[in-house]
Design a protein around this nucleic acid. Sequence first.
DNA 1: CCAATTTCTTAAACTATATTAAGACGCTTT
DNA 2: AAAGCGTCTTAATATAGTTTAAGAAATTGG
Lengths: 193, 193
Amino acid sequence: MNTDAIINSFKQYLPLGKADSAALAERLIEKRIKRRHFVLQQGDICRHYSFVVQGCLKMYKVDDKGQEHNLQFAIENQWITDIGSFHSELPSELYIEALERSIILQISKDQLIYLYVNHPKFDRNFRVIIENAFVDLQKRVLQNISCTAEERYLYFKEKNPELFNRISNVQIASYIGVTPEFLSKIRRSLASR
Amino acid sequence: MNTDAIINSFKQYLPLGKADSAALAERLIEKRIKRRHFVLQQGDICRHYSFVVQGCLKMYKVDDKGQEHNLQFAIENQWITDIGSFHSELPSELYIEALERSIILQISKDQLIYLYVNHPKFDRNFRVIIENAFVDLQKRVLQNISCTAEERYLYFKEKNPELFNRISNVQIASYIGVTPEFLSKIRRSLASR
DNA sequence: CCAATTTCTTAAACTATATTAAGACGCTTT
DNA sequence: AAAGCGTCTTAATATAGTTTAAGAAATTGG
């Protein structure tokens, strides 16, 4: 199990010392997920935070009509989890599914609390991670209530260049909240300018 | 300055001891805000977390066309701040404005960090507050990309009964992301069933 | 490599929402 | 009482986005 990436990823916040890193490494579980396989399914309790070492995951909800709505993607060095279910220990309404063959590192609630209590840096680090995610999510809400689908598409492309070239337009359409047909129309209109 | 409400509000998470409560109370600033006056204006750095003791505030963005888009409301016992600006110390793009004559308690970044370092319960408490806000925000994104305006309106009403009867329809329309005229249409259609 | 599946696109008809303009109502302020 | 202001509504017209259906191109699984 290679934990370099995850330990490295904390460097941007409060870097971990040797003891912190070791404590973390001991508590991680590595999983390999095939394309189209699930890390979390609706109805299950989300028991882990997952860090993507390699690959790409999506988290989404399926509505009454069976349509999928993408809430979040995660590629290398990003975290993904249903925080609501994780903390409440109630069944999740979401799926987390691999878009590519992926390798993830997971930590359970018990182990995370152990880290919070015994290695205070994790407390701070995870708060910063959530705060950043929160700010991004606020921007997304503002966009959803104030921008056109075309603007949301261009913003997604600009802010996620890596992801943009890695996933299908169907996935992007589901994320920005339009049908694939309409996204196709947007793309044609943009191309012809 | 009455700090009962704010100390009480932490009870639902990790209750504060006497020393914690006193440390917090010492670091709060009380402000009285008149209707239509600002706690934060676009271009200013957001220097405080604000806790509403009494009254009602809204946080919103003004777009290029001068339209307001409501990101968040806060009534009694709720927190409001531009977390992005607060942490980055960069100018905010948002306004926080009083919809009613309000009383708030504010804490600055320095003082908050002091609490985090010397009274670890605040670390945990503020993380939980943000996690809960994060989960609500995710639900709102999911709604925005998957529900009709009518569904968003009904959900808002159900989840915010207090607020619903306290603010104008113009404010609700701006929050759910439709024009006031269209909200009026939705309401007529609902009334006639 | 083949067969199956998914993806992307097009177009026409339809539905949801925005825009513009106008008038009615209730609240404040003078 | 009058004037002004914000709110709510209505309606006509315009635009944004969905639905349905179909076919071609690309990707994937065996």
